[in-house]
Design a protein around this nucleic acid. Structure first.
Length: 501
RNA sequence: GGCGCUAUGGUGCAACGGUUAGCACGCGGCCCUUUCAAGGCCGAAAUACGGGUUCGAUUCCCGUUAGCGCUACCA
């Protein structure tokens, strides 16, 4: 082996002069999905851990399926996740001459040949392969047509360029995650390098195999960290590296992320795009922490790990080989943990963003005396929050006078018919408090309960619904302080009519 | 169909020849209590199956099964 593991378990070349170079190469056929995000995260962690370079490359060679406008969304999602790159984004669509030159070289040295078979002959293999398992058993076979031996099937066709796989040999490589891999070349088809030029197009487009390898060579990628769906493709790429006279990078394939039904995660599983999680109100760091633990572990029981710790502990050696199911419940748990455990100054900006989205943010909370109030209020609310929108939904009454009474809360805590009278008295008693503090409020309320012969809980629960419209809220007297005397008294009085109905 | 990869509670991970198989999420119960969370404690829940190797297999080997991947002029 030309390389080995260094102390921390990460694979590096023995004589690496500078740090490793890795890349994340999404293709703009959709949004950034969680599987891609996890791959990007591993690359990012690895490159930072090893003081290397993280390159972003957009693989947009499939004109048919490409949606250029999706690129921005992908970049945005990466940024939201905090996965910044050092180079790029490079676009394969702007590097076409590179791939064509490589194909020429392979043609010239006999590693490739022109294939004149009509594309339809091979295209649509999946369509012809019935998912239902009924009838026709189309066994797909390894493509080896007459063109390989210089007998063009149809010289009138515009040819594609295929790689000439040397039969009777074995191709092997060492994967940093899956270990030693070996396959007989006889199992590898003569894969296409350059697609046949289409009508009206200016030239031939490369396939994934060619594009990825040429770019990885040209960009001097040292570690290819990507999804395990490429494990079976790797021998082909190794053949390409050799035919191009390039040194092999270290491959590290990471297991796939599955849906709850253990099939590959896809749209029908619901939220699969990173953007949706952002919209749902997850914190990027919580999402990162969760994602990192899908297919990787620090080797012990550690779970809650902030990014610096992840950076410190990440290693390819800790990557598992089994596919993992994406569990939203656990993601939410992580978010809850972050919402509660982060230093308050790290969560207030996020809450500010949420309140802005909800249209109830006031600039006076930003700094000065008001800033202290905002941070204290967020701190008061956060033990009961799970996602960011909780602040603007059930926490709305703390920031806005415009809130509704939750029907279930009214139903539950406004049942007692004495309540309107009691609440009026409570409002009066609170209004009379000279110094608005926790104990004074509690004193006033409990005193009233005692003199009226009712349980304090009755007043507490009813008052809570009256001041914030919710059955769920922080402890009442702390809520009183956060909302302020004037508003509390006002809201108590305003609730009276609703309480009677 | 062919080739390959994988296999620990429902889920994510630990145990890398010897443990009463550990942790976390979720679930159930209890405590706390001013609602609801959080937190604390307790509990149910797993080595896919069958053969080997070994004094001893979750762990190593083989087979079966299942899932997934590749088998495209997609990436």
């Amino acid at each position: 082996m030309a390389y080995g593991k260094c102390n921390d378990g990460n694979w590096v070349r023995g004589n690496a002069m500078s740090g490793p170079r890795v890349r994340f190469a999404p293709s703009p056929t959709g949004y950034l999905h969680v599987g891609g995000a996890r791959t990007a995260l591993f690359n990012w962690l690895f490159s930072h851990r090893e003081k290397g370079t993280f390159i972003l490359r957009v693989e947009d060679t499939d004109v048919e399926r490409n949606r250029p406008q999706l690129v921005d969304g992908i970049l945005e999602s990466l940024k939201w996740l905090g996965l910044d790159w050092d180079e790029g984004p490079y676009f394969q669509s702007q590097r076409l001459p590179l791939y064509r030159a490589a194909a020429e070289k392979l043609l010239a040295n006999g590693s490739a040949y022109l294939c004149y078979c009509p594309p339809e002959k091979y295209a649509g293999g999946d369509a012809a392969d019935p998912e239902d398992g009924e009838s026709q058993t189309i066994s797909r076979r390894i493509t080896r047509c007459g063109c390989r031996d210089g007998q063009p099937t149809d010289p009138n066709q515009k040819p594609a360029v295929r790689f000439r796989v040397k039969l009777g040999e074995t191709t092997a490589f060492d994967d940093a995650v899956f270990g030693h891999r070996e396959i007989s070349n006889d199992e590898i088809e003569d894969f296409v390098l350059l697609r046949s030029p289409r009508e009206g197009a200016e030239g031939a487009l490369p396939t994934y195999q060619l594009g990825a390898v040429v770019d990885d060579i040209e960009m001097r990628i040292t570690h290819v960290i990507r999804g395990a769906d490429h494990l079976s493709n790797t021998p082909k790429q190794e053949l390409l590296y050799r035919a191009l006279g390039a040194e092999l990078p270290i491959f590290a394939h990471v297991p796939l992320i599955l849906g709850p039904d253990r099939t590959r995660l896809s749209k029908r599983h619901g939220a699969t795009s990173v953007a949706m999680y952002k919209d749902d109100g997850f914190l990027p760091e919580a999402f990162r922490n969760f994602l990192c633990l899908l297919g990787w572990s620090a080797g012990d029981d550690s779970e809650f790990m902030r990014t610096p710790e992840l950076l410190e502990r990440f290693s390819l050696a800790g990557v598992s080989r089994t596919n993992a199911v994406f569990d939203r419940a656990k993601l939410e748990w992580f978010n809850t943990q972050y919402l509660q455990r982060l230093p308050i100054e790290e969560v207030t900006p996020e809450v500010k963003g949420e309140l802005q989205r909800a249209g109830i943010w006031k600039n006076e909370w930003d700094s000065g005396p008001g800033g202290g109030w905002f941070a204290r209020t967020v701190d008061l609310l956060r033990p009961r929050t799970r996602l960011l929108p909780d602040f603007s939904h059930w926490g709305r009454g703390f920031f806005s006078d415009d809130f509704d009474y939750d029907p279930a809360a009214r139903q539950k805590f406004w049942k007692d018919e004495k309540l309107p009278t009691l609440m009026a008295k409570l409002a009066h008693a609170l209004d009379a408090i000279p110094e608005w503090n926790h104990d004074a409020c509690e004193h006033a309320l409990r005193g009233l309960a005692e003199s009226e012969g009712v349980k304090a809980g009755l007043l507490i629960n009813a008052a809570r619904v009256a001041i914030v419209g919710q059955a769920v809220a922080p402890p009442l007297f702390e809520s009183f302080l956060a909302i302020g005397k004037t508003r509390v008294v006002e809201r108590l009085r305003q609730a009276l009519p609703a309480m009677q109905s």
